[in-house]
Design a protein around this nucleic acid. Structure first.
Lengths: 201, 201
DNA sequence: CCTTAATATGAATACTGATTCACCTTTCAT
DNA sequence: ATGAAAGGTGAATCAGTATTCATATTAAGG
């Protein structure tokens, strides 16, 4: 039942192909992250990867497909990073704190991430929604169980999850897009204090 | 010292011209907000406005110029809206609360706003930075003076400003992009509790 | 009525860059 | 050694649309 003429881009069959595919993916991350989706030409990506333009279409159906894959990858990598950083921390508020630290550290090391995920809202809305929904779900579950054990005061877990996620995003952006170089530890401490005590004196 | 051939788009001289310009601006808001910058063709915008394509260039230098103007406008309108909603509230935490309510209400009524501002990061980064820097400055000043009077506990005002801004953004997005229809009052109350007490039981 | 500046029109132009394709090279199982 | 299969090439094609421009219409002041 394959469509007759349209050669579907295949998974690489050999290590050589896999390497090229990865080179392309890495180049796409760099170029799209730097110039944005619209400005990033296939030519620039293949040049960065050191292959010919046509090669791109051996591995990807088009520009939008690499982009989607990039968004998916970033979500997975980031989630793993945060999970590792918080593994084994049973105190919810401390886990939140270390999660934030891991997030900000990761973002500082991958500034392109931020742009690519942001741009997904326009290039691939479904990937964008999946990305944030997944994160929100994780946050919410953590908050729900912490509320169940009485570790934190009661309150709508979903709203709180989005609020906390918003804080992390915003502070990542503050650093990466607005170039504010407050040391991560200082940021984390300030936010942790906010999490724990709120603003009221 | 004018460039010889290039007819600079002029401010309208008559009420008729002003009306057309406004129609174009409104159409651009609608179309760009709906389809995104890249997909929004000048043709679609002029069709929506009920004028010919060429008319567009009487009032704007190009697609990017309307976009920038839109971002600037939205910032001004939103700032005025929030200022009006919080005017005369001296308690900082209550002002924060009403500001959030005004913001969420506004965003719910202007879903295109959200997309346009987001997309500015890619289409017109300077406008994007100006938009958020201005907001952050406002937040920060409020927090600083509240800290000075001892109304809130001490802490880095800039980091807190970005954190609060992030919460508002995120909850706006939760509603507009993710379609979560929790009543605004409920959201506001939940976040206010978070502001005041934090998460610790 | 005229005249003229301001507005409006929409077909023609110009450009950009994604995608295709006919052909070449490398790899490796037999 | 050899012939597919996998991988790679890059010039040519093609589509979409922003922008221009020669021309037409409108609206007031004189």
């Amino acid at each position: 039942m394959d469509k007759a003429g349209a050669a579907e881009p295949k998974e690489p069959k050999t290590a050589r192909g896999e390497a090229t595919r990865q080179a392309l993916l890495g180049a796409a991350e760099k170029v799209i992250g730097r110039q944005g989706y619209a400005e990033a030409s296939i030519g620039a990506i293949t040049r960065e990867a050191g292959v010919a333009q046509g090669t791109f279409y051996i591995y990807f159906k088009g520009k939008d497909e690499v982009f989607s894959e990039l968004v998916g990858d970033m979500g997975r990598v980031l989630r793993r990073t945060i999970a590792e950083a918080t593994a084994g921390i049973s105190d919810r508020l401390l886990a939140e704190r270390e999660g934030l630290r891991a997030f900000l550290t990761f973002v500082a090391g991958h500034p392109e991430l931020y742009r690519i995920v942001q741009e997904a809202l326009f290039v691939d809305p479904d990937a964008y929604r999946a990305y944030f929904s997944t994160f929100a779900d994780g946050y919410r579950e953590g908050l729900e169980s912490a509320a169940a054990t009485g570790e934190i005061r009661p309150g709508d877990a979903d709203i709180r999850a989005w609020a906390l996620m918003g804080i992390a995003r915003s502070l990542g952006e503050r650093a990466v897009v607005f170039g504010k170089t407050t040391p991560i530890d200082e940021v984390v401490d300030c936010v942790h204090d906010l999490f724990v005590h709120g603003l009221r004196r």
